[in-house]
Simulated scan of single mutants.
Amino acid sequence: MPNAVTALALCFGLTGVRFAIAGEWEKAVGAIVIAGVLDGLDGRVARLLKAESRFGAELDSLSDVIAFGVSPAVILYLWALQYIPKYGWVVALAHAVCCALRLARFNSQIDSEWQPHKSAGFLTGAPAPAGAAMALLPVILWLALGDADLPRLQDIFARSYVVAPWTLFVAFLMISDFATYGWSSFRLRREFRLPALLLIGLIGAAMLTAPWATLAIAVILYAVAIPFAVRSYARVKRRRAAERTAT
């Protein structure tokens, strides 16, 4: 079952390319979003069913490379990067290659006994699904501004000179050593659990009524949170160093 979910995520990622070829940008981005949701479920399904395996881990990484590396790169190229003479494809390749490098680094550290970021509840660099969402942020903003009937502002985010540097920046974040938040970074106190459930419900409702604006806000908030994650991990490092000195 977990591997079936992973394969389904792979299929949705590739389907995003199919929609991009047809110029159906909403469906293309939507397919990548669904792939991201499925990618977040497969590991939890595996742990729930006690069906974790090395095969599943390898399949998950291969699926991530295609769904969150290759597919967003092709979508961005067909949407805006193709209009950059000579170098547009190179920029698109940068995203795909950096996603592959990030996942290769992740796989090489699976059996490592000491992973400083993971032990503190952080991730190393932007994870592949988040990297795909951030790379596609110009497209998401373009769709959101189209819904808001703001054509002049919408046109800015479709400019290749905006998309190209942003794509390179996200590619760098994926292979960087920056600490980023993971699910285990958040430990809610009991008194905050009901408000958190309410917030999740409101976000779900917002995704139904204004999906692109809500998704754009979520991706922007994640990007803004990265410097805070770096600062939080720096505090963890200082505390660990102080504890080692004390002992």
Results as ranks from 00 to 15, higher is better:
172 F>H: 09
172 F>D: 06
172 F>W: 15
173 L>V: 06
174 M>I: 10
174 M>P: 02
174 M>H: 08
175 I>H: 02
175 I>S: 03
175 I>Q: 08
175 I>L: 05
178 F>W: 15
179 A>P: 03
179 A>T: 01
181 Y>M: 07
181 Y>F: 13
182 G>T: 02
182 G>Q: 03
183 W>T: 14
183 W>N: 13
183 W>G: 14
185 S>A: 11
185 S>K: 05
186 F>W: 06
187 R>K: 15
188 L>T: 12
192 F>H: 15
192 F>K: 15
192 F>M: 15
192 F>N: 14
193 R>I: 12
194 L>T: 14
194 L>P: 08
195 P>V: 00
195 P>H: 01
196 A>N: 03
197 L>T: 08
197 L>A: 15
198 L>D: 05
198 L>E: 11
199 L>A: 14
199 L>C: 09
199 L>I: 11
199 L>Y: 03
199 L>H: 07
200 I>A: 15
201 G>Q: 10
201 G>N: 13
202 L>Y: 04
202 L>Q: 10
202 L>T: 11
202 L>E: 11
202 L>R: 11
203 I>K: 09
203 I>F: 11
203 I>W: 04
203 I>N: 04
203 I>Y: 04
204 G>H: 05
205 A>Q: 04
205 A>H: 06
205 A>P: 00
205 A>D: 06
205 A>Y: 07
206 A>N: 11
206 A>L: 14
208 L>N: 12
208 L>G: 08
209 T>M: 06
210 A>K: 13
210 A>W: 06
210 A>Q: 12
211 P>D: 07
211 P>T: 14
212 W>V: 06
212 W>F: 11
213 A>R: 07
213 A>Q: 13
213 A>S: 13
214 T>L: 00
214 T>P: 09
215 L>P: 00
215 L>H: 02
215 L>F: 01
215 L>K: 03
216 A>I: 04
217 I>H: 02
217 I>T: 14
217 I>K: 02
218 A>L: 13
218 A>T: 08
219 V>L: 03
221 L>P: 00
221 L>H: 01
221 L>V: 03
222 Y>A: 00
223 A>G: 08
223 A>W: 01
224 V>A: 11
224 V>G: 04
226 I>F: 00
226 I>P: 00
227 P>T: 10
227 P>H: 12
227 P>R: 13
227 P>G: 09
228 F>A: 06
228 F>T: 08
229 A>N: 02
229 A>W: 04
229 A>F: 01
230 V>S: 03
230 V>L: 07
231 R>T: 12
232 S>W: 06
232 S>G: 05
232 S>K: 14
233 Y>P: 05
233 Y>E: 11
234 A>I: 05
234 A>K: 11
234 A>L: 15
234 A>D: 09
235 R>Y: 05
235 R>G: 02
235 R>S: 10
236 V>S: 05
236 V>Q: 09
237 K>E: 14
237 K>D: 07
238 R>D: 13
238 R>M: 08
239 R>D: 10
239 R>P: 00
240 R>C: 06
240 R>L: 12
241 A>E: 15
241 A>P: 04
241 A>L: 12
242 A>W: 06
242 A>L: 14
242 A>G: 03
